[in-house]
Simulated scan of single mutants.
Amino acid sequence: MAGRYRNARSGDEIERDWKEQDLVIKAREQQDKYVREHYLRIAAKAREERVWLFDPVVRAWYNPDEFEATFKMYIRSPEEVYARVKFKDPFEAIEEAQTKTSEFIKRVLDYAKKISSENEANKDKELKQKK
């Protein structure tokens, strides 16, 4: 029974560990504050320019308020924010998406016509072979 207490850490060791943990927590809080200031600056710039923020990695749009509230969950450094986020006018994005959608629909319809004509040609061949 006495052996368990001999392995216990001294008060100085415990205090040193607490101080180290406290330093780590304070450093993390400072980093979070630094990053948060950059988020606020980016959101303020977006408000000033009347644009939204687009994150191409997750393909998500954020108005400035949403950016402040949610974007901090994804990125831990301002450098990553600046490299990743794009300022865009949402109306330009709508026009771009509409153009891309129209192009995609055209491609799908062209392909469907091609497949349909190939199927008709194959049916004609099969009918001729049966005769």
Rank of each mutant, 00 (worst) to 15 (best):
residue 2 A to D: 13
residue 5 Y to A: 07
residue 6 R to Q: 12
residue 10 S to M: 06
residue 10 S to N: 10
residue 17 D to P: 02
residue 17 D to G: 02
residue 20 E to H: 12
residue 24 V to H: 03
residue 24 V to F: 00
residue 24 V to T: 06
residue 26 K to A: 14
residue 31 Q to K: 15
residue 34 Y to N: 06
residue 37 E to H: 14
residue 39 Y to M: 11
residue 40 L to Y: 07
residue 41 R to S: 06
residue 41 R to W: 06
residue 42 I to M: 11
residue 42 I to S: 05
residue 42 I to K: 03
residue 43 A to G: 04
residue 44 A to F: 11
residue 44 A to V: 07
residue 45 K to S: 01
residue 47 R to C: 08
residue 48 E to Q: 03
residue 51 V to W: 00
residue 51 V to P: 00
residue 53 L to D: 00
residue 53 L to T: 00
residue 54 F to N: 00
residue 54 F to P: 00
residue 57 V to H: 00
residue 61 W to V: 06
residue 61 W to C: 05
residue 62 Y to D: 03
residue 63 N to I: 14
residue 66 E to W: 01
residue 66 E to G: 04
residue 68 E to H: 05
residue 69 A to P: 10
residue 70 T to M: 10
residue 70 T to F: 10
residue 70 T to C: 10
residue 70 T to I: 11
residue 70 T to D: 15
residue 71 F to K: 11
residue 72 K to D: 14
residue 73 M to P: 08
residue 75 I to F: 12
residue 76 R to T: 15
residue 77 S to G: 07
residue 78 P to T: 07
residue 80 E to I: 15
residue 81 V to Y: 00
residue 83 A to T: 07
residue 83 A to G: 09
residue 83 A to L: 09
residue 91 F to H: 12
residue 92 E to K: 09
residue 92 E to C: 05
residue 95 E to G: 04
residue 96 E to A: 08
residue 97 A to C: 01
residue 99 T to H: 04
residue 102 S to N: 05
residue 102 S to A: 05
residue 105 I to H: 08
residue 107 R to M: 08
residue 107 R to W: 04
residue 112 A to N: 14
residue 112 A to I: 13
residue 117 S to K: 14
residue 118 E to C: 14
residue 125 K to R: 13
residue 125 K to Y: 10
residue 125 K to H: 10
residue 126 E to T: 09
residue 126 E to Q: 08
residue 130 K to W: 02
residue 130 K to G: 02
residue 131 K to A: 08
